[in-house]
């Protein structure tokens, strides 16, 4: 099976094959590519970057991201959850806005100073 690696801008085209010894990956320029292909075929994960509403007029939304990866199929569930949040104070870059979201152990962090 072919998988495009999304770890870095190189975007290597990876070939992943199921063998008796496990999944064999080729076409990767680095180790991270092999790990990515295996995960992509077994339990695909993504990080999410988006915005969350605030109560401030000069900055109606604030950019945020997950501080780790979450299962790919949870992306839309996470988006709906984030729609229920509102930043009620001015956060700094890196501060946690919501922790352990959807029981994934991953936090939502703010990505610029408000």
């Amino acid at each position: 099976m072919e998988v495009v690696c999304i770890v870095c801008p190189n975007g290597c085209l990876l070939q992943a094959e199921q063998t008796p010894e496990g999944i064999k990956v080729s076409g990767n320029k680095c180790k991270r590519g092999a790990a990515f292909a295996i995960e992509e075929l077994t339990a695909p994960k993504r990080s999410l970057t988006t915005t969350v509403a605030t109560c401030f007029k000069d900055m109606p939304v604030v950019p945020v991201r997950t501080d780790g990866e979450i299962p790919k199929e949870k992306i839309f569930e996470l988006m709906s959850f984030l729609k229920t949040l509102r930043a009620e104070r001015r956060y700094k870059m890196g501060e946690i806005l919501a922790s352990d979201i959807l029981g994934t152990g991953v936090n939502i962090i703010v990505t610029c100073d408000m």
């Binding site: 870095c8 801008p9 970057t49 915005t51 950019p63 945020v64 870059m93 990505t111 610029c112 100073d113």
Partner: peptide, 29 residues
């Protein structure tokens, strides 16, 4: 970069995948 909330910035300079906002914030500080 204020509106580039997605990541993929700074891989060459910082060896990290930052969002556009984070990349800018480092310089702004």
């Amino acid at each position: 970069l204020k509106q580039c909330v997605h990541d993929g910035f700074g891989v060459i300079r910082f060896g990290e995948k930052l969002s556009g906002c984070e990349y800018a914030q480092r310089f702004i500080d």
